[in-house]
Design a protein around this nucleic acid. Structure first.
Length: 308
RNA sequence: GGUGGGGUGGCCGAGUGGCUAAUGGCAGCAGACUGUAAAUCUGCCGGGCUUCGCCCUACGUAGGUUCGAAUCCUACCCCCACCA
């Protein structure tokens, strides 16, 4: 059953979602529910472009700093926790605004994932370790063997298919069809876009700024905690390039450029996702314009919706 | 001025007579995506079209040899290295 309308602001990285959310807070008693798979990691603030402390003081944020860099987070956990935040915010008379760049997290919250059967942690770890040792093609063969519906998609998704099939006794597709979750909310999507050239400029500027503000030092500090290079929290764009430099695999003056490049590619994937994986937006706004103007328009549209 | 090396599609870079619109890589574009998703993958990529095919234009420039040239020859222009 679909419940109340939930405003959801999406857009590629660096398009200016945070600025618009903050501007919107002048219109609404707003609390931000961040749908961002990287900002959940503590202490990686610069590398994940978290809102600043000041911004967070002005507008309450949920979904930040949830786990240690060595811990894994997930779309399913996000969906559960975010559903809770939305309910709390609403109960205290606030208006939750989902702000996110992580398409899967938004979808998980809004549409619900299938109800995953319990996968016994011990067996899962053992299986993961086994799968990690397989060559790519062999892993894909395994996925095809244990899951007839496996459609490819590389290592990570093959591993997931094998995991579910072997540990639950049913293939992923079966669960997806048989154990559909029902969404509790009706999304009210606002998509922020900008012409590629503009977006690319903003991305480049942001990458430079990250390095200038101490990205490398931040990552170095987290690395001293003893994480391996492939810790979940260190796998984001920006952080990864800093780790490469710190491990001597990249020259320092190439860090910002590499971040910008990888961010451009990521932004493109995000746009594809928002175009095809989410329901049609009620508003698609050109983020080249000032955040205040965009906020005005969003607030006005929301007002019209309420009356209708 | 002399000698040697080199000029290839947006960039890097193979190719050294036909199987080459030209291997690769990068950038770019498009797409997939149900619990690791800033991840993991796929396709396109000189131009045009009636796009499982056809046409046009292409390997510094201009000529030439050849049935056929990015590939061979000549001249010229430019770049690099060394010698003067």
């Amino acid at each position: 059953m679909a419940g109340a309308s939930l405003p959801v602001l999406v857009g590629p990285t660096a398009v200016g979602k945070t600025a618009v959310a903050l501007a919107l807070a002048r219109h609404w008693p707003l609390e931000v529910v961040s749908a961002d798979s990287r900002q959940v990691y503590r202490r990686l603030d610069i590398g994940t472009a978290k809102p600043t402390r000041r911004e967070r003081a002005r507008v309450p944020h949920h979904g930040l700093d949830l786990v240690e860099p060595g811990q894994r987070y997930s779309a399913g956990r996000f969906a559960r926790e975010a559903t809770g935040w939305v309910a709390e915010i609403t109960a205290r008379g606030g208006l939750p605004l989902v702000v996110g760049g992580t398409g899967l997290y938004v979808k998980a919250l809004v549409d619900g994932l299938f109800l995953e059967p319990p996968l016994e942690p011990g067996r899962r770890r053992a299986l993961d370790a086994w799968l990690a040792r397989l060559e790519g093609p062999e892993l894909l063969r395994w996925a095809g063997r244990v899951d007839g519906g496996f459609r490819g998609g590389g290592r990570q998704r093959a591993a997931r298919a094998v995991e579910v099939a072997l540990l639950s006794g049913r293939p992923l597709g079966w669960w997806q069809a048989a154990a559909r979750a029902e969404s509790l909310v009706t999304p009210w999507y606002v998509v922020l876009t900008a012409p590629r050239a503009v977006l690319h400029q903003r991305i480049a500027a942001r990458a430079d700024e990250m390095v200038r503000r101490g990205l490398i030092e931040e990552v170095a500090s987290v690395l001293t905690e003893g994480h391996t290079g492939n810790a979940p929290g260190l796998d984001g764009i920006g952080i990864r390039e800093a780790v490469e430099y710190l491990h001597g695999r990249r020259a320092r003056d190439t860090v910002a450029g590499a971040i910008a490049l990888n961010t451009r590619r990521y932004a493109k994937r995000q746009e594809t996702w928002f175009r095809h994986q989410l329901a049609d937006p009620v508003l698609a706004l050109d983020a080249t314009r000032p955040p205040e103007k965009l906020a005005d328009e969003i607030a006005a549209a929301w007002g019209r919706r309420s009356k209708a």
